[in-house]
């Protein structure tokens, strides 16, 4: 049990966030903290890959939704890499598949983020 959160800065300004392990009620705050730090530091273009997530619950989904809202408020976006049909199904059940930006691969996510506009401050 446990979660490690890896981050990788990309040349275009996007950041890949990779939780590794169980992304759930007790560990979700670790990801939330990383996402908040990135947006507060003016880096609202974020790719969160679920490739190495072994368990995902509703609290983790809540962190993703909150992170997405925050990134968009600052002129960026949060794109989830969701290769797992199980997690994709959960997002569909929660009717979040249209609200969230979802990619099948990190490359696709970074391409989506590169098309996003320039980041701006919380007040626009």
């Amino acid at each position: 049990m446990g979660l490690e959160v890896r981050t990788e800065q990309q040349a275009g300004g996007a950041v890949i966030v990779a939780p590794v392990g169980e992304f759930e009620v007790y560990t979700a705050a670790q990801v939330k903290d990383v996402l908040m730090q990135l947006t507060d530091a003016g880096r609202p273009r974020v790719c969160v890959t679920l490739a190495d997530v072994t368990f995902l619950d509703s609290k983790a989904v809540g962190v993703i939704v909150e992170g997405t809202k925050r990134a968009r408020e600052r002129g960026g976006d949060l794109v989830i890499v969701c290769a797992s049909e199980r997690y994709a199904r959960h997002l569909r059940i929660l009717k979040l598949d249209e609200f969230l930006s979802i990619a099948a691969s990190t490359d696709e996510a970074l391409a989506m983020l590169s098309e996003a506009g320039e980041p701006h401050g919380p007040n626009g």
């Binding site: 509703s58 989904v61 959960h90 059940i93 929660l94």
Partner: peptide
């Protein structure tokens, strides 16, 4: 809170 509805929806599904 909002996430409670997520928990219920996932459980039921």
């Amino acid at each position: 809170g909002d996430e409670s509805s997520y928990a219920l929806a996932l459980m039921e599904s």
